[in-house]
Nucleic acid binder design. Structure first.
Lengths: 97, 97
DNA sequence: GACATATATGAACGTCCTTTCATATTTAAC
DNA sequence: GTTAAATATGAAAGGACGTTCATATATGTC
């Protein structure tokens, strides 16, 4: 550390942190962290409106944090990789110590 | 993981991520990650206005991410602990891989 | 084709936040 | 006490963002 990364990197860091820093999106990420879930499953588990969940999933997808799989009328989402789990873990530990 | 934390924890996580998700504040955190620095030093290194740096330091301080020490007319800031370094590392790795 | 279910989308509203500008406060030096 | 340097603060502007509501699209079933 101790050296400030270049703006390009900082911009990406800012974006990632920004996407993660939302109550609803955090819930969605946790919801699908164990196994893939359909949108309606996520809606039930998160307790937000279908519209809101759909909007926020779009944000997560644009940031490449989740990937999707279509099956009939349903769409299943899961985490794109394990980096997000690490990120959430570090943040979780920080606030619960 | 796989279980959604309670709202209280999620709120704190959201707050921490929010504070971290700003270009100027990221620069400030990196600036003082190696050693404590005065505000004017930070201003030079970060390349933002004195007012903006001061405002953002206030945000960081309110979130308990930095601590301060006064010496004459100058105020020196340093990271409150190493959790932030971990957080920045995880995010950095994610965006630079 | 008509209907139901699952998901996505667009517009609109209110609110929060970053940044700038001007100014206040504090401390030291003379 | 006046001046200068360092830092903090308040107001204001502008844009970004989360949420809701209404509606569209897509797939499956009859």
């Amino acid at each position: 550390m101790s050296q400030i990364p270049e703006n390009k990197v900082l911009d990406k860091m800012e974006s990632l942190l920004n996407v993660a820093s939302d109550f609803t999106r955090l819930k969605i990420l946790y919801s699908i962290s164990g196994e893939e879930k359909s949108v309606s499953d996520i809606v039930k588990e998160v307790g937000a409106s279908q519209s809101l969940v759909s909007h926020q999933i779009k944000v997560l997808k644009k940031a490449n944090l989740v990937i999707s799989r279509k099956e009939g009328t349903r769409v299943f989402y899961q985490l794109a990789d394990d980096h997000i789990v690490q990120l959430l873990s570090v943040v979780y530990d920080h606030v619960t110590e």
